[in-house]
């Protein structure tokens, strides 16, 4: 074998093995078992059936899908609303300050996301810090229900996923040429007009990128629902987790996962159609 060939193998073998064994194989296997039948209590019978996919369209599970999409959608919108003013405000600072501020954004996220959820639990519960402070200052007389409900879940989701919106938005805002904004204000454009006519179109790639990186994980974060939602709600993450770990109906769990993958693929397809680059997604 020529020297050149050996080098080619050296550079390509790891990636091919990796993609085959750790990406293609698991996904194909999930696809395969989604057509299996589950026997009572956990075994799988390797016949071909599409019953699992028919079951997914039961009203119960469709409503789980809708709830998940709603939660993930609201999370994405809140993240957008928080991030836009934030990155614009940051971009008005001196470059050095910008660097420091953006590093500060990342600091809380270098701890584990569960640890941060625990911090919120300490803050939000009935006897938690926020209620104690509000009660102590006499602003409220009865403790507020801040968690074990939808607002609690949303706080957790937004908090966990916010940097995935801030980072791509920031990098696209910082590419806007300052003269564009000056020109707009010279021509008498209102702030709102400048925002929608210049800033939004210029940051569209970052916006799509961020939305994608917020929306899809939000569909699956079962631990936030468990901790801040009090286990009262079921989103896709919990449903899949239950099928694999509690109900032990792997084929059904696999079918739900495959549909989730399809939904994600549709979103990615839209992202690409709109000119998004796949490599930008990994930069967060």
């Amino acid at each position: 074998m020529s020297n050149k060939k050996i080098w080619k193998i050296f550079f390509l073998a790891p990636i091919i093995i990796y993609v085959a064994l750790l990406i293609a194989l698991p996904l194909c296997y999930i696809l395969l078992i989604s057509f299996f039948k589950s026997d009572y209590y956990g075994g799988m019978i390797s016949t071909f059936t599409i019953q699992n996919y028919i079951d997914v369209f039961d009203q119960v599970y469709v409503s789980v899908f809708l709830k998940s999409i709603l939660i993930a959608g609201i999370t994405t919108i809140i993240c957008i609303l928080i991030s836009y003013p934030f990155v614009i405000a940051v971009s008005h600072k001196h470059p050095r300050t910008q660097k420091i501020l953006m590093t500060l954004v990342m600091v809380p996220f270098l701890t584990n996301s569960l640890i941060r959820m625990y911090g919120w639990l300490v803050l939000l519960r009935k006897s938690g810090v926020i209620n104690q402070v509000l009660l102590g200052t006499g602003i409220i007389s009865e403790p507020l229900s801040l968690m074990y409900n939808i607002p609690g879940i949303l706080i957790g989701m937004v908090y966990t996923l916010l940097p995935f919106m801030i980072l791509p938005l920031y990098s696209s805002v910082s590419t806007i040429e300052p003269y564009l904004l000056e020109a707009a204000s010279d021509l008498g454009a209102s702030k709102i007009k400048t925002f929608f006519k210049i800033i939004v179109p210029q940051t569209l790639p970052g916006l799509f990128n961020g939305s994608l990186m917020v929306f899809t994980p939000a569909l699956g974060y079962f631990f936030i629902i468990d901790i801040l939602g009090g286990g009262k709600m079921m989103i896709l993450g919990n449903l899949i987790k239950n099928q694999f770990l509690t109900a032990r109906n792997w084929p059904f769990g696999a079918a739900i996962s495959i549909i989730l993958v399809l939904i994600t693929s549709l979103i990615i397809l839209a992202y690409r159609k709109l000119g998004g680059k796949m490599d930008d997604l990994g930069g967060a």
Binding site: P26, I30, T216, P217, G220, L236, I240, L260
Partner: peptide, 10 residues
């Protein structure tokens, strides 16, 4: 891009 949970169970 896929939700982590899918990769986890796969």
């Amino acid at each position: 891009v896929i939700p982590e949970i899918v990769l986890g169970i796969a």
